[in-house]
């Protein structure tokens, strides 16, 4: 019962936040509200038993996305022009209401929320829940499905992330026209207030090792508890981003040079795809880890560990590459 009350309240909060996002014109407020929106949805995922998803959403949505959006408005401008914000609202409103009504009509046939008999629960899900542990020896079914059963899919996702990182580099990578070299964020990063704030420096020095330790735990404990390469990569990069925010961009780039980041990003994908090639050479199917060791369980364990490592490396370095690209834009 308490679950339902929490569920209803959080969903109502989400709806209110979303409406506030549409109505506001101050972009800074919009971005901060979006961070809250993401965090609320992460909490909701915990209530709905999706712990791995909640983890990712909290790190990515409330963390990295918000930082990137803040960087963008620092590079562009921080308010929406009023004269453009409310023109001709009727046509879009009509389209939205019609689409929404059609979708609500569609939900009338969906089985009720939480129904254990609904068709979605009867298909492959029962197979994964019954067989994941005996077949892969990994208690976290999400990790087993992600890295083993649906390994192809995840390889594709990692390549998409790498591609997006490359595209960001091409768009706003190194060379920047001098004429617009007026970057508020850069000023903020180098500003005396932040760099010389004693509390911030000491707190971040204590926090950064803990964040990195936690990221490693999430990376290598992902088989047994919530976590895995995606979450670990994002958390690890947030440690470096915190360092960059407090100690300046140049300092962070000395810690991890961008050439190494680019190597790491491709190396992660190569490890992932390489594990597949090794399983092929050992006589199995592509990404069938059972042939990697003497027993099926040991092989699956090794395969999942390596693949998650590849995912973690790529996600970590792409997140940092993207952050450095945004923060370094407009550096004089």
């Amino acid at each position: 019962m308490i679950d339902i009350i929490i569920d209803i309240t959080l969903l109502a909060f989400l709806a209110i936040t979303a409406v506030a996002i549409v109505r506001l014109t101050n972009l800074l407020a919009i971005v901060m509200l979006f961070g809250i929106f993401s965090f609320l949805s992460a909490t909701l995922f915990v209530v709905m038993d999706a712990v791995d998803v909640a983890f990712t959403e909290a790190a990515v949505g409330a963390g990295i996305s918000t930082v990137l959006m803040l960087a963008t408005i620092a590079l562009t401008k921080d308010h929406e022009e009023k004269k453009y914000s409310s023109h001709r609202p009727w046509l879009p409103l009509a389209v939205v209401i019609a689409t929404g009504a059609a979708l609500v009509y569609g939900t009338l046939d969906i089985p009720a929320f939480g129904d254990p008999e609904s068709p979605a629960q009867k298909h492959v899900a029962t197979y994964y829940i019954e067989k994941a542990m005996p077949e892969t020896g990994v208690p976290n079914i999400v990790t087993a499905v992600l890295a083993s059963y649906r390994g192809y899919d995840t390889l594709g996702e990692v390549v998409v992330i790498l591609t997006a990182g490359i595209a960001v580099l091409l768009l706003i990578g190194d060379n920047c026209p001098k004429s617009i070299a007026r970057n508020h964020m850069q000023e903020g990063l180098k500003g005396k207030e932040i760099a010389h704030n004693l509390i911030l420096r000491i707190a971040s020095k204590t926090l950064i090792p803990l964040i990195i330790l936690f990221a490693l735990y999430v990376q290598f404990h992902g088989d047994y508890g919530p976590g895995g390469g995606f979450q670990a990569g994002v958390i690890m990069s947030s440690a470096i981003i915190l360092y960059a925010l407090v100690y300046g961009l140049d300092g962070a780039e000395r810690v991890i040079p961008s050439t190494i980041l680019r190597l790491l990003a491709s190396l992660g994908v190569i490890i992932y795809a390489g594990v597949g090639v090794v399983t092929l050479l050992l006589g199995g199917n592509y990404l069938d880890y059972s042939v990697l060791a003497d027993t099926q369980i040991a092989g699956q364990h090794l395969g999942i560990l390596l693949v998650e490592l590849g995912v973690g490396m790529t996600v970590f370095s792409i997140m940092l590459i993207i952050f450095f690209a945004f923060a370094g834009r407009g550096r004089p």
Binding site: S65, E157, V160
Partner: peptide, 10 residues
């Protein structure tokens, strides 16, 4: 979610 943040960044 992770692909989403990569495309948002783009």
């Amino acid at each position: 979610i992770v692909v989403g943040v990569a495309t948002t960044a783009l």
